[in-house]
């Protein structure tokens, strides 16, 4: 993971699990709660920041403070523990909480103090700003749809990164490079065929096929694992999987 987006070092301290962080957020154990919070923060800070910039028309400094403040406040007061999967998706819940938090901040005319205290998370706001500059929201896109779009993008970005790490760790970098060349090629690049990849990587065409198929399966598994971490129930997981991938999962 990019060091810029590491948060508080918690993920280095504890093994990553695929249990629901939403459920773990209700734990009595502070350590478990902390880890759950880290997962939620990692999964949502970037779409949340972009959403604050768009919907609340906040400048980048205010948006940073509001995003930091929202997550710090949510952690301190354990807001995420009150999520009820029967009422809405977690994504909707988080967005609603964020709106409520900002509305209160603005109402009270307060300005969050920047930096310095215990709940200051190391988040790569610069990359988020670059992305906003590169790809602004469409005029006809509602802030809610924009939040969802950016969340999907962030989920896939994290999954690609996790896939790369997994391939690296297991000595399968060729597989990842094939995946990168075929499935992550830049928009302007000419499409490559499996045969040309086989030639480039000095592999049999069937091997390219099998490597790509296996890597894609890994990718799918990673996406679904991440999704399971940030959903509270099986039903919510299936609904989100359908929304994210358009498939029914068991």
């Amino acid at each position: 993971m990019d060091p810029d987006t590491d948060i508080g070092g918690a993920q280095q301290r504890f093994p990553v699990t695929n249990q629901s962080a939403i459920v773990a957020a209700r734990s009595e154990d502070h350590v478990v709660r902390q880890r759950a919070f880290d997962t939620i923060l990692t999964s949502y800070w970037k779409p949340a920041y972009k959403y604050v910039r768009l919907k609340w028309q906040a400048n980048n400094e205010d948006a940073k403070d509001l995003t930091q403040g929202f997550f710090a406040n949510a952690f301190e007061k354990n807001h995420f523990a009150s999520y009820d999967a029967r009422k809405a998706s977690f994504q909707t819940f988080l967005r609603t909480c964020l709106d409520g938090f900002i509305a209160n901040e603005r109402k009270a005319g307060q300005r969050l103090k920047r930096g310095g205290d215990a709940n200051h998370f190391q988040l790569d706001f610069l990359s988020a700003e670059d992305e906003i500059a590169m790809h602004a929201a469409n005029v006809d896109l509602s802030p809610e749809d924009y939040f969802h779009r950016e969340w999907v993008r962030w989920m896939f970005t994290m999954s690609v990164d996790a896939l790369r790490q997994r391939c690296e760790a297991s000595g399968r970098m060729v597989q990842f490079q094939l995946f990168e060349a075929y499935d992550l090629r830049d928009d302007g690049e000419t499409a490559v065929s499996y045969a040309s990849l086989a030639k480039t990587f000095a592999l049999e065409p069937a091997t390219v096929t099998n490597y790509l198929a296996a890597t894609r399966r890994d990718f799918r598994r990673i996406v679904l694992d991440k999704l399971r971490e940030i959903t509270a129930t099986d039903e919510e997981f299936r609904t989100e999987a359908r929304s994210l991938l358009g498939v029914d999962v068991k």
């Binding site: 987006t5 590169m134 992550l184 928009d187 894609r216 990718f219 799918r220 991938l245």
Partner: peptide, 19 residues
């Protein structure tokens, strides 16, 4: 982390889901 364009997201969505 490399930024993913809309078309890449769409492609990844399809390879992870639809045939």
């Amino acid at each position: 982390m490399k930024w993913l364009s809309d078309s890449k997201v769409s492609h990844l969505r399809s390879i992870a889901g639809d045939p």
